[in-house]
Write a protein that binds this DNA or RNA. Structure first.
Length: 509
RNA sequence: UGCCCGGUAGCUCAGCGGUAGAGCAGGUGACUGUUAAUCACUUGGUCGUAGGUUCGAUCCCUACCCGGGCAGCCA
């Protein structure tokens, strides 16, 4: 056991004893629940009396006044008044700050001169009704402690910052209203994803992050190797000898768990993955990242319609979850990031999505009379401008487009009877574009092998994949939902780099 | 990767062939149950880097670096 763990363990057991004691103490009626009780002040802050710490979000929704409680957090702003100061504290538990009143005669108040935006502080005192407008409750401190100073070089100010500037300080930007809110929404939606699938009997499975198939699907892959890049072991032809590499062959970071997911769906019925995905494409757009999180369900005994039903239900479920669980954050985004966001999301939560075949979509685009930079032609991929027109102008709501020309799609998608299209589908949303891509998979061995040959794949390397069609094959379908794109849609953020704490994009890691 | 736009104070920006300005932040003072408090004063910049044109470049030109937007690839 490392020294650090040892200390933590000791602190915990000590904390538990303090908790027991403090519960026995009279007059300690802090209305707190579960993990938000932190009776730790006596351990680290001898100045402060022993009491219950509550989080800011709990204080702000309190039903009644509370005495003898502790709050701790980071100062967002301080305003000096005659004889006392207003100190607004944010502890990350919610968007809003708690206004604390710190009398200049209090123990610890002599440090107030050093309290600038960004400083960390702990206060003991009482939660009391606020006499002024702006907040129902405020914190009347009886003891003040400056835990960690932040001097004038602290980059975050009270005023709003541009997302571009905030990206230059990723280690600090989570302290802003903007990224802080995004990360809370991200956390809630991650759990909502699990709830959605668990409620429907899907098994959460983990597909490998490291893969040895060098053409898993579309996309450039990141190589995983332990060979010395300057002096790799070489084969007879002088090239790097992958047989000498760690796994005995070339290996990469996954671009999708789909193929493995199919094998597990063939055992567990309905499965989903939710994990990181890596693409080495040199994509420099506001909606591409080199490392992102993807949700990939795979369903046995399911066709394209069932696939679309689940995808649409999931997107709608997540929007509803955000509206219900992150109301404050969404109101903030609606006011400062994307005006009209709430109205759009409410519509999405209630209204059924539009659903059109690729052929119908092409007809709509041709009939629109619009002149697009890229002409619309059956058989060509829909361009971003086409997708944007469909979802933002024509339908003004999310649209699922299905049955794409087979020429533009990967080998594993099920061929339709028209021999021209495959059972693929994309779910498009306003502002973001493609958020889901999926398909019914080709479950017929002969068709699959023919498609693989057409795509130039080595059948031998994929024997395990085609085995699924040899042994108890079933119609099955699945899709990938880009988690960050979903977050962009829900928060109104226009750049994927602003919905990931540490975004990885070409040239940035 | 291609096309386009930008880089001036800690932040957001204005400026312009004659070597720099505002608001906010910081400091000082005043005032005050304040709400991105207010008022006065004030610190702070080799104008992205390297060349070139010019009597003189932050300004014009070239290259490079960095940031952003759009497109392709996709989720």
């Amino acid at each position: 056991m490392s020294a650090t763990t040892l200390v933590c363990w000791r602190s915990c057991s000590r904390a538990f004893m303090v908790l027991k004691r403090s519960r026995e103490m009279e007059g300690r009626k802090a209305e707190t629940v579960g993990r938000a009780c932190f009776p730790l002040s006596s351990l680290t802050l001898p100045l402060l009396p022993r009491c219950m710490r509550i989080k800011v979000n709990q204080a702000l929704v309190s039903e009644k006044a509370q005495t003898g409680i502790e709050v701790a957090g980071w100062v967002r702003t301080k305003r000096d008044a005659k004889g006392f100061s207003f100190v607004e504290i944010n502890d990350g538990s919610c968007l809003k700050n708690l206004q604390a009143i710190v009398d200049h005669t209090l123990p610890g108040a002599e440090t107030l001169a050093d309290v600038l935006t960004g400083a960390s502080v702990r206060l003991v005192g009482d939660l009391v009704p606020s006499p002024a407008k702006g907040q129902a409750w405020e914190f009347k401190a009886t003891t003040f402690e400056l835990v960690g100073k932040a001097d004038a070089t602290y980059p975050l100010q009270k005023k709003g910052h541009t997302p571009e500037f905030l990206r230059t300080i990723p280690h600090l930007r989570a302290r802003t209203n903007r990224l802080g809110s995004t990360l809370r929404v991200r956390s809630k939606l991650a759990m909502a994803v699990h709830r959605f699938f668990q409620e429907r009997g899907f098994a959460y499975v983990h597909t490998p992050v490291i893969t040895a198939s060098d053409c898993e699907g579309a996309g450039e892959l990141f190589r995983v190797t332990t060979l010395d890049p300057l002096a790799p072991e070489r084969d007879a032809s002088g090239k790097a000898d992958w047989a000498k590499d760690f796994f005995g062959r070339q290996s990469f970071l996954t671009v999708s768990g789909q193929l493995e997911g199919e094998t597990l769906a063939s055992a567990l019925g309905d499965i989903y993955t939710f994990g990181p995905t890596f693409r080495a494409e040199n994509s420099n757009t506001s909606r591409h990242a080199s490392e992102f999180w993807m949700i990939e369900p795979e369903m046995s005994f399911c066709d394209l319609k069932g696939d679309m039903d689940v995808a649409e239900a999931l997107v709608q479920y997540l929007v509803r979850a955000a509206l219900e669980e992150c109301a404050e954050e969404l109101a903030f985004f609606d006011a400062y990031v994307d005006k009209g966001l709430l109205e759009r999301l409410r519509l999405v939560a209630e209204k059924p999505f539009a659903r059109v075949s690729y052929t119908e979509a092409v007809d709509i685009l041709l009939a629109s009379g619009r002149s697009f930079e890229f002409p619309v032609k059956w058989g060509e991929n829909l361009q971003a401008e086409h997708e944007r027109f469909l979802t933002e102008t024509h339908f003004k709501c999310p649209v699922t487009v299905y049955n794409y020309p087979k020429t533009a799609k990967p080998f594993y998608m099920r061929q339709n009877d028209d021999s021209k299209t495959v059972a693929a589908m994309d779910l498009l949303v306003p502002g973001v574009g493609e958020i889901v891509g999926g398909s019914q998979r080709e479950e017929r061995l002969d068709r699959l092998e023919a498609a693989m040959s057409e795509h130039g794949l080595d059948l031998q390397a994929y024997a395990w994949y085609t085995d699924l069609r040899r042994f108890g094959t079933v119609p099955h379908a699945g899709f990938g939902l880009g988690f960050e794109r979903m977050l962009m849609f829900v928060t109104g953020e226009g750049n994927i780099r602003d919905v990931i704490a540490y975004p990885r994009t070409p040239g940035h890691a």
